[in-house]
Design a protein around this nucleic acid. Structure first.
Lengths: 209, 209
DNA sequence: TTGATTCCGGACACAGTGTCGACCAGAATC
DNA sequence: GATTCTGGTCGACACTGTGTCCGGAATCAA
């Protein structure tokens, strides 16, 4: 997206510092496509942005901070995709679930390296841990609410298992499958099969379809 | 298990080196219970075993090599648990699936730190990657075979999705759930709920139960 | 133009890794 | 009992990467 195109918003032209910060972000995204975050040194990031290593610390306090910014942007897209189902107001669940899952697969395809790095950083970085815990919580409660609503409406089979518990394992399944699938060679056929399979499991588990 | 108790097997008494190797293994297992593998230095392992850092390299070539040995032992237990279902010969699937899942939860409970570290090391260590790819492949084909057999017998609902694809997502779900669940505070009630929920999803997905 | 920020680089101290050769104790051999 | 041999250990070294501190250059606002 080009800068300054949003109508009615006057923004100062990016300062030199903004430019290098962005250059660092770009370098990080590029390098993440080829290797793990832990295998990327501060110097890789700095020299990729045309500055010395010590100057990096003026812009970010760690590699993880860079990743954090990168990940935040992608995450809103994930929410949007999920919302297709959790906030559905009409129509059968089937298509909504499928579209929501397909949307997630698309986002993972487009941003695999960043998302995978962010997931892995969970294990070493406390902020990232919190970040994902939050994400998971939001997803799970949204799904659980949806299940409860559909159970109340007689659409979904009643518990046990509790909506929360069911939501937890289904969301976990998706996360893991998306993660691994995003590492495989691009293939529309494979994408379709993954979406089909996950959709089937969701529908059978929630609606006994 | 105490050494030298197996009847009829004469084994040389452990040499000094065997003892230190074992001490390193023990130290690693102990430390993994409190922090990540990457946060454990070679010196931590060495001094925990009562030797200097440089002597560590006589026994192992890396931290990962230590973990590798630790993980291999635990893995056979995982296989045993899974076998309860995949090689079932009689009776209804329900109990077999449940027992198999419960067995896995138990193994993860008992060896969480080692298993989690081994999973995480997948991202940085090529051997570990291969190791888990192998494990996953074996699990998935075993499950897929079972599904195919039950479909042929008219017990399971026919595809699509293909048995392999279905097996992949279900095994992924279990892995992810086991991983996270093993980090939570021990609780028989929570264990039961996880087992129940996973069992439900498996049975509904495969048998439309 | 000047003064204040903003941004950058050189230098330092430090932590961890991996390797090398010297060495030492105890078992095996003469 | 003296010897060799081998398994195991250690100290020292070179190297990579991190984080900080401070002086100074570039940039921007007035």
């Amino acid at each position: 997206m080009a800068a300054g195109t949003t109508p009615g918003v006057r923004r100062r032209k990016p300062s030199k510092g903004d430019l290098t910060s962005q250059a660092i972000l770009d370098t990080a995204e590029k390098l993440l496509a080829e290797r793990d975050l832990t295998a990327i040194t501060i110097d890789d990031l700095a020299s990729g942005a045309g500055i010395k290593r010590s100057a990096f610390y003026f812009h970010f306090e760690s590699r993880e901070a860079v990743l954090y910014l990168l990940a935040e942007r992608v995450l809103s897209q994930l929410y949007d995709a999920a919302t297709l189902w959790t906030e559905r107001t009409e129509g059968s669940p089937d298509d909504a679930v499928r579209r929501s899952i397909a949307g997630n697969v698309a986002v993972w395809r487009a941003n695999g390296p960043v998302l995978r790095a962010a997931v892995r950083a969970r294990d070493t970085d406390e902020n990232m841990r919190q970040f994902w815990a939050d994400v998971a919580r939001r997803f799970i409660t949204a799904v659980a609410d949806r299940i409860d609503a559909d159970r109340a409406a007689g659409l979904a089979v009643p518990g046990p298992p509790s909506a929360k518990s069911l939501a937890t394992v289904l969301v976990s399944m998706n996360d893991e499958v998306f993660y691994h699938h995003s590492r495989t060679r691009r293939s529309p056929a494979a994408d379709r099969e993954v979406v089909d399979t996950l959709t089937t499991v969701w529908l059978r588990s929630i609606y006994a379809r």
